[in-house]
Design a protein around this nucleic acid. Sequence first.
DNA 1: CGGGCTAATTGACATAAATCAATTAGGCCT
DNA 2: AGGCCTAATTGATTTATGTCAATTAGCCCG
Lengths: 249, 249
Amino acid sequence: MITSSAHSTEDKICPHNARQNCSSCRLSAICLPLALAQDEVVQLDEIVQRGRPLQTDELLYREGDNFNSIFAVRSGSVKAYRVSDKGEEQVTGFYLPGEILGMDGIGQNRYANSAQAMEVSAICEIPFSKIEDLSGRLPNMQKHFFKLLSQEIVEDQRHITLLSKHSAEERLASLLVSISARNARRNLSAFSFRLPMSRTDIGNFLGLTIETVSRVFSRFAKQGLIKINKKEILVLDIDALKRVASLAN
Amino acid sequence: MITSSAHSTEDKICPHNARQNCSSCRLSAICLPLALAQDEVVQLDEIVQRGRPLQTDELLYREGDNFNSIFAVRSGSVKAYRVSDKGEEQVTGFYLPGEILGMDGIGQNRYANSAQAMEVSAICEIPFSKIEDLSGRLPNMQKHFFKLLSQEIVEDQRHITLLSKHSAEERLASLLVSISARNARRNLSAFSFRLPMSRTDIGNFLGLTIETVSRVFSRFAKQGLIKINKKEILVLDIDALKRVASLAN
DNA sequence: CGGGCTAATTGACATAAATCAATTAGGCCT
DNA sequence: AGGCCTAATTGATTTATGTCAATTAGCCCG
């Protein structure tokens, strides 16, 4: 346990000027270096670009842009969304520190989503051509990327099931459980956290209206599963929440 | 155009004993060999295994099974489905000749779906470890697999949007347009085909009940968009159908 | 420090699709 | 050829969630 306070200061401590390499990054255990040997991480390090932080609502890339890089979230959070031909906007994912986005661009050489910062966020950019090179040389790297891509497929299929077969309560509980778990993975509290996204984004992601999201939040609070203060969430009964999620995932 | 008759005999002519290699396979233009040079296809050929055909309803693999291979459909058709912790079954995809399935297993070394033949089907099996080897040696191969995986992600995200934001009519129109296009890709008729899946599977895939699927089919027929005879579909107005799909994809 | 803007909440009502139920129509086996 | 089994269709009714509307509560900026 790195922190016992409700809200970790992870994102506050020298957010954008931490020592600029993967080896010393505190996310290395869950981010790309995860799968690499010490000396391989050095090679990864050489191709990672760390730019200025993104401001809230700033776009990292836009749907249809030429695909050149994938990105890792170092601090903050990013949402990805696509616009259907019908003009409907669909949030396809939320990305927290240590998570990789942009891989949807590989197939068509264009991003299939837009990516937008939900708060001030530091992002690592990794040119994909360099990753291809590296993957050709380092079997670990290739293997890891195959895995990453595959996991995103499984993640998306889970979400398909969620949208197709589960109620509003199940969907929201599922999201809360997911965020809780991802926080825990980063050694943050699983029970007290701030949702980086708006109710609108949550609703859009879960295929619900903002009103329904709000009502379900209120119901959960009334039932004593959580305590809400705007975006601050205190999980009072994670097991009940998991039960509601029905493990809808 | 290979055939002008309403129903191609593609799947009937020597279905399982066509010359057993990728170079001469009539699907090579849309299947794995697509991305490879002549001499590279030969190397692919050496690792592809072609077993006895699957009977209708036979399982190719089961969710949770150890992952070892990916598969290409040579003839027939396969559905993939997963069971959520809630016990709900969700069809995640339909695979037609030339299409690849099983890649969801890479991430966890276990298949995340079960795969079941919807009719008698011939399947090519490709051990994934061999693909990793080959990808390390052939940049084309590696690139192609990254693309394949990425495209499945985009496909799934499209489906997420479909389920989240589109009406029953839009969903079904979208599926019909998709199948029509995939048939055209195989040089089959885009306007006259047999749906290999049941109404139950369609409903499950689209997040609808079988009754709703049936009603929407009837409505489309009444509106003169299609003609239905059980699983046989005659598309009368593909443009209208695309309009209804709203290009919900 | 106050006014206005936006996000969230809450309530009343509408609706698309689900559920329940009955009927029809094939296909298959004896 | 006839009967049975399953898949599909069609209709009547219910329901979860969406839509419309009004209210509240922060929060930013001058």
